[in-house]
């Protein structure tokens, strides 16, 4: 079962993992208020559709109230066949390389943690590294250096360290919470300053 977005976000918070500021919106004016003049993103969240971008359930760069209203109406229309659903508004994340960090429960080996090239490239390149939980600092560093995309994903030693820390935190979270079956943080946008987690998906 898909865990509610904000429950999942709260779980990440408890492990010191920040994610982009978000709110469920019940109307277009709700979303306009949340935007407060800054560009936002709106998405439709439903257990019935994993591939949000492909299914046209993500609208980016919405600034004025007309754009926001148009996006809200469209998502609401598309949501009719995807009930139950929520529409979420999020602050726009900075541009950067998109990574995926995730995990799942394996019937053989228990919890696994993953990092890979994320966003729309996940399935095209299948460039990822996987380990069993819990992982050590050495394991996290090895995972990152194993990726073909390691050089574009890490701008410098600092961002490699930061990603390794994130992996260790996620591994701990997975290990501590036996009910989690699958977890996707995708995309995790990596910038020169840090990273921004834009989407969270936890299945119990």
């Amino acid at each position: 079962m898909l865990l509610d977005y904000f429950k999942a976000k709260g779980l990440l918070d408890r492990y010191g993992i920040d994610s982009v500021e978000s709110r469920y919106v019940k109307s277009a004016s709700d979303a306009v208020k949340f935007a407060n003049g800054k560009p936002i993103v709106m998405k439709l969240l439903s257990e019935k559709q994993l591939h949000k971008s492909k299914a046209g359930l993500v609208r980016l760069g919405l600034s004025d109230s007309a754009e926001i209203k148009d996006a809200y109406d469209e998502l609401e229309r598309k949501g009719r066949s995807l009930k139950p659903y929520n529409i979420i508004a999020q602050q726009t994340a900075p541009n950067g390389i998109e990574a995926i960090v995730g995990g799942r429960e394996d019937p053989q080996f228990g919890k696994l943690v993953l990092i890979g090239l994320g966003g729309i490239y996940v399935e095209a390149f299948k460039d990822f590294a996987l380990r069993t939980c819990p992982i050590t600092e050495y394991d996290a560093a090895e995972m990152i250096s194993q990726l073909k995309s390691r050089d574009i994903m890490t701008h410098n030693g600092k961002s490699a360290k930061m990603l390794a820390d994130l992996l260790i935190k996620v591994s701990k979270l997975l290990n501590d919470n036996p009910s989690i079956q699958e977890l996707d943080l995708n995309p995790v946008i990596i910038t020169e300053k840090g990273y921004e987690i834009v989407d969270i998906r936890v299945l119990e």
């Binding site: 898909l2 257990e47 994993l50 995926i100 995730g102 995990g103 799942r104 394996d106 053989q108 080996f109 696994l112 993953l114 890979g116 994320g118 996940v122 399935e123 299948k126 990822f128 996987l130 069993t132 699958e182 977890l183 996707d184 995708n186 998906r201 299945l203």
Partner: peptide
Amino acid sequence: AHSHTAALAGSYEAN
């Protein structure tokens, strides 16, 4: 799979 992670990392990959 309901997640990208599970779609990428099957049982061979786990081994």
